[in-house]
Design a protein around this nucleic acid. Structure first.
Lengths: 189, 189
DNA sequence: CGTCTATTTGAATGTACTCAAAAGCGGTGG
DNA sequence: CCACCGCTTTTGAGTACATTCAAATAGACG
């Protein structure tokens, strides 16, 4: 149950047994049913989530009612509205589950305690955000310089096998194109 | 000379006099002339830079020779190819100066020493990357849901007065449109 | 002052969009 | 278990926004 998250942490910092045990006490397991909402836009995002199975989608709904996927978070990814979480302001993004999903919830209070108790986690989250920063930066550059078809290839590379698990309209929304146009692209290739 | 960078740091962590003095010893002032290159794509990015005056541009040149601006870094911003810096791989992005620019250079070795000597900097850079992550996330969402005109308004908001200082082709490149089209937009409004 | 680069303008093109309708698929209840 | 209903995907036609190409004008720098 905890293997995945511990190996996720171990990718950037090394915890001893005691630290690992302590860390786990800060987590709350939560089950999110397919199509149910973990965070609504306009709420305050009070926790971040580590996905141990299933898949979340972090998205924004614009004034026309169109969704725009910011990120998919399948197993081994972290999710949250980081701006809302960090500034305690109303969330711009919403989060829901595309599959039945198991997450570990890490609340703001617990995270701050964690930073104090095991300062290594400052480093861990520094590296996590650094990687997220790099990922979004590459996505910006992709959206500037690549065609929709090339970005689709990138998506498949970033999220292996995810294509089979989720609806195409969500992939189109991630790519910044319409489902109709994605359908055309797939037909072509 | 050091006021700007110290107030930049102070925005997220509090340093005592000793720590501030120690921190400054890790920095090297560098002057970058307008149009000269601070980092070329294909090199390894061995340092990150804090801009105290002037303006840098972080960009990628695609196979057609077209530039795509990832970020502007005017005074009070940090810059670098974070992926190259972090993984010691060849830089995908290049950095040059759009104005005569003064930066403080913080090398990888010095940064690692800084993390050890003043662990608060783990927190500082965690927050810095967190904010960068959020900024790029919003830019992705903007590129998905806003028109070029609306994104142009966002640019002006994010970088007040920068418009007057740099060429329009760079702004177009940042917005992901052609200079020709930006010219049309400006005419319209 | 002259040259080089950036910006503007106009015309033709193309990519991705909207709208509409048909086909496919999945889930639910009888 | 099958039939039906609703949602997703596909397909086609017409449209709009942003592009490319080309030429003229403006501006910056030596």
């Amino acid at each position: 149950m905890f293997d995945l998250i511990l190996s996720n942490i171990a990718r950037h910092v090394t915890l001893n047994q005691q630290e690992a045990d302590d860390f786990l006490t800060f987590l709350q397991p939560v089950t999110v049913k397919r199509k149910s909402t973990l965070l609504s836009a306009g709420e305050i995002c009070k926790a971040i989530y580590f996905v141990s199975s299933g898949c979340l989608r972090i998205y924004h709904t614009d004034e026309n009612g169109t969704d725009h996927v910011s990120l998919f978070a399948p197993e081994d990814w972290w999710a949250g509205d980081m701006y809302s979480f960090h500034t305690k302001t109303l969330a711009f993004y919403a989060i829901d589950a595309l599959e039945d999903t198991e997450v570990f919830k890490l609340t703001e209070q617990n995270l701050e305690r964690l930073y104090v108790q095991i300062p290594k986690f400052e480093r861990f989250f520094r590296i996590l955000f650094q990687n997220g920063f790099i990922m979004y930066q590459q996505r910006i550059t992709s959206s500037q310089s690549l065609t929709a078809e090339e970005r689709y290839a990138r998506f498949k590379n970033l999220y292996p096998n995810l294509e089979q698990r989720i609806a195409q309209k969500h992939i189109a929304s991630y790519l910044g194109i319409t489902p109709v146009f994605l359908s055309m692209l797939r037909r072509r290739s």
